[in-house]
Simulated assay, not measured.
Amino acid sequence: MTRRVLPYRTPSENVISAEDWHLVTPDGDIAAPEALPDWDYRMNLRLRRVVNVDLDRARTESGLPADAPLLLSAVWTATGSNLSGPAQHLRLPRAGTVPMKIDFELSGTNLGGLLLLDTALVLAERRPDARPASPRRAGSILWSDRRALRLQGDAPQFPMAVIDFSLTSFPDNAAWHLQISGSLESATMGALLLLVNERNTVTATAFANAAKPRQIDRLVLSAVYADAARLMVEHALSHEDFSEESDYPDDSLGATMLILFDRLFPDQSITDMRLRQRQSPSLFASDLQAAVTIFEVS
């Protein structure tokens, strides 16, 4: 592991012993894998790990007094949504070797792409009387590590919100609306937003039951996903520079569109599908309906 060089003293690596991250599931804890192929935005993630800190050595080797306040901090970053935030801050006791349990839950609607989990031991308060070469600023990092977890489910991965359409410019009786904004280079999670009309109880209930859907919920969700796929493909094809040779940033809207297109039409070129859309819109719509396998639910 690469160790960054800081302008102040830090403790030895063996002062902190960090256990692996675990996913907390209804069936118990499992070691966090490198990727979650079945993840989608409806899946919240609860993560847990234990970090053992030798507090006496941590302070001594950093040149800090025995009463210097320390924090164990966990921060998350999602590349697909361009969002990040603090997950948990734990204030450490004064002495001894203590196991600190980090345990938090992240909302799936805020995630996507690569989930980065940063853990750090930091100085909690500024120390104006610090000795030379010892940390003095609040937030000075004494130790840190990073773990990456790729969220790569095939289900639509974009944030959603349930709102009252009567308070918006959308038709009161519409069931849902997919907003697509920004360029194809924009982050997917920032460019897509699925709005569900709370006044349409059938659709709103289907999303509320998405973790354990009934048969009717599966049919509704299938219709929403089919419509979202149609809108995304049509949006991509409207950009003349959208092609197999396009080079979009990872987790961008363009990259997501290419993945979606390849999954829906693996044997068709983008140029051919663009021509079909323009020359025979009804046939194109049927092709897309078949590709998303609408209403094929178990």
Rank of each mutant, 00 (worst) to 15 (best):
R218W: 02
A175D: 12
A228W: 01
N209L: 12
L178W: 05
I141A: 11
R126Q: 13
A191K: 01
Q152Y: 03
V202K: 10
S186Q: 14
M160E: 03
L192M: 13
A175T: 08
Q179I: 14
W176Q: 14
A187D: 03
G153Q: 05
D217C: 11
R150L: 10
D118T: 10
M189P: 00
V220H: 01
I180P: 01
S144Y: 06
P159S: 08
V196Q: 06
D129P: 01
L151M: 06
D227I: 05
N197M: 07
D227K: 09
P171G: 05
M189F: 02
A175P: 06
L116V: 13
M160G: 07
S186L: 02
A175N: 07
P159Q: 04
D172H: 09
S186N: 07
G190W: 00
A211Y: 07
V202H: 04
Q152C: 13
N173V: 12
D154R: 14
Q157N: 12
E125A: 15
A175W: 04
W143A: 14
V202G: 01
D227L: 06
K212M: 09
T201H: 13
D217P: 13
G182N: 09
L167I: 00
N173H: 09
A130K: 08
Q215T: 05
T201I: 08
A133Y: 08
R199M: 09
L121H: 07
M160N: 03
V202M: 11
F165K: 11
D118K: 14
L117W: 03
D217Y: 11
S169L: 13
R126D: 10
L221S: 08
L221I: 11
M189H: 05
N209H: 15
R230T: 02
A174M: 12
L116I: 13
D145G: 03
R199H: 08
R131D: 12
A120H: 02
G190E: 15
A211L: 15
